[in-house]
């Protein structure tokens, strides 16, 4: 085991509490689609390969590896059949974390929540020898994101997550486009975001859909956004673009805001389900443990 400095340990505890680790150990990431992995992993591939698990027979054609000829069958039927075995491959698992300024709100902040979630999912993936890549949605920082594989790189993952900070306010679509252009592999993609992009999230999701990825959108909202507790005549300042909205808070306005939020969530859910994207809305008050072990299991991301 590598020696862990204390800060990192505490950071690790923040992101992945030991109690969670035990649960995550037993889980694995599921892909609804079967992708071709690059390396031999721990999951069955659509390709026939060299695992111990029998898959099928086929007629021998000249040039086949004689080691896979079923000699017992040849003895019985006097015909050459080749034994096919299932190939076991790794899974490409991408996690995209929205690191815009708006993610800094909430208790805990949405960014922190996103990091915890990414760590939990990443840990599951690493345990199953999947190929894990966690990228912030920031075109500047994203390319340096490491590719992780194997349980041994958990600390590296945690370290990387820890140093992630909210930074650029780049439109979601631009970030996703940048990601798509750099990563060509297929696999499972989890997008953790608050979807608070004035230019819209639809373009971004369409880019991802076009890559034929198995996409999960986890919509993180803080409690302040779901049920704002404000009063009086206010000048709301957008933390990203300093846009100003002047409101006089009234019950009617609050009711309307809640309806607007519900409508927004419904639209996002609708948009995602039409394109085969799994959408999950969560509040920062819901624990990551519960989210992963219950909601994401129901949605089929883990089992």
């Amino acid at each position: 085991m590598p020696e862990n400095p204390l800060p990192l340990k505490s950071a690790a505890n923040d992101l992945l509490p030991p109690s969670l680790l035990a649960k995550l150990d037993r889980m694995e990431l599921v892909s609804r689609k079967i992708f071709r992995g690059r390396m031999k992993g721990e999951r069955r591939s659509v390709r026939k390969g060299q695992s111990v698990e029998f898959a099928d027979f086929r007629n021998y054609v000249p040039g086949d590896d004689l080691r896979f000829v079923d000699w017992n069958l040849y003895a019985r039927l006097d015909k050459l059949f080749l034994k096919l075995f299932l190939e076991e491959e790794d899974l490409h698992f991408y996690t995209l974390i929205d690191v815009s300024e708006s993610m800094n709100f909430g208790t805990p902040s949405k960014l922190q929540y996103a990091k915890q979630l990414a760590a939990a999912l990443g840990y599951i993936g690493l345990c199953r020898s999947d190929r894990i890549k966690i990228e912030p949605l920031d075109p500047v920082v994203a390319p340096s994101a490491p590719v992780l594989r194997g349980r041994g790189q958990v600390w590296q993952m945690l370290e990387y997550l820890n140093q992630l900070k909210s930074s650029a306010n780049v439109p979601l679509a631009d970030c996703v486009k940048n990601f798509c252009s750099r990563n060509t592999g297929k696999g499972v993609l989890v997008l953790i975001t608050d979807l608070m992009d004035k230019s819209g999230y639809e373009t971004a999701l369409k880019y991802l859909v076009a890559r034929n990825l198995d996409i999960y959108v986890i919509h993180v909202l803080s409690q302040e956004e779901i049920d704002p507790d404000i009063q009086g005549d206010l000048k709301l300042v957008d933390c990203e673009d300093s846009d100003i909205a002047e409101i006089s808070v009234s019950q009617r306005l609050l009711d309307r805001y809640r309806r607007t939020l519900a409508t927004y969530i419904e639209q996002a859910r609708d948009f995602c389900s039409r394109r085969g994207i799994v959408y999950t809305m969560t509040s920062t008050e819901r624990s990551v443990d519960r989210l992963v072990s219950r909601y994401l299991r129901q949605r089929g991301l883990v089992r």
């Binding site: 300024e101 708006s102 993610m103 800094n104 709100f105 909430g106 949405k110 608050d194 608070m196 992009d197 004035k198 803080s222 302040e224 956004e225 404000i230 009086g232 005549d233 206010l234 000048k235 709301l236 300042v237 957008d238 933390c239 990203e240 846009d243 100003i244 909205a245 002047e246 409101i247 006089s248 306005l253 309307r256 805001y257 607007t260 939020l261 927004y264």
Partner: peptide
């Protein structure tokens, strides 16, 4: 004299839509 006290929010996105509705 109406001085609205400023309050930083993650996004005015939803608020703007709310006010527009109104």
């Amino acid at each position: 004299k109406l001085r609205r006290s400023p309050l930083q929010v993650p996004s005015t996105f939803l608020w703007t839509r709310t006010i527009e509705d109104m």
